[in-house]
Nucleic acid binder design. Structure first.
Length: 144
DNA sequence: TTTCTGACA
DNA sequence: TGTCAGAA
């Protein structure tokens, strides 16, 4: 039987392929830079053979995007790549945690309430994430 | 037309 | 890194 909520239930983002021209348009990184970064081993394109046009997976596209953000923050290319890699490692952990802990989101008049479920095994307290006026906070409530 | 590699006022 | 050339 098929699992409805596994990773498989979503689009395999690595099957979304982008040409170097598209990557340039989306990330603003020049083709010259992309080839140089690849030459330096910072990024990789899908099976780059001889003079064939480069293709990038969506994962790589995201990676490139993150590198540019760190470059904009003033980091060197090497440092930006390192930070992007670190960020890359955090994503699956964050996704797993959120996927298992997120119970639902309630949209109220002045705020949004994220239900993270019970805090304790006894189910005496429930924790919520509050998003209000552009700010976030936690709230723990006792369960009746 | 787009991309590739190599080179450099 | 940009840019130009010559080829695919």
């Amino acid at each position: 039987m098929a699992e409805l909520h596994g990773n498989d239930a979503f689009i395999d983002t690595d099957k979304l392929i982008f040409g170097i021209g598209q990557v340039q348009q989306i990330t603003g990184v020049s083709g010259r830079q992309l080839r140089y970064w690849e030459e330096q081993g910072y990024i990789k394109s899908i099976s780059q053979k001889k003079g064939a046009a480069r293709e990038y997976s969506m994962h790589t596209l995201f990676f490139i995007f993150h590198v540019t953000r760190f470059l904009d923050d003033g980091f060197t290319l090497q440092a930006a790549v390192d930070k992007a890699k670190k960020f890359d490692r955090q994503l699956p952990v964050l996704r797993q945690f959120l996927r298992s802990q997120l119970k639902g989101v309630d949209f109220q008049d002045d705020q949004s309430v994220i239900d993270f479920g019970y805090v304790d095994a006894e189910h005496k307290q429930r924790i919520y994430g509050i998003v209000k006026n552009g700010e976030t906070s936690f709230k723990i409530e006792n369960v009746d």
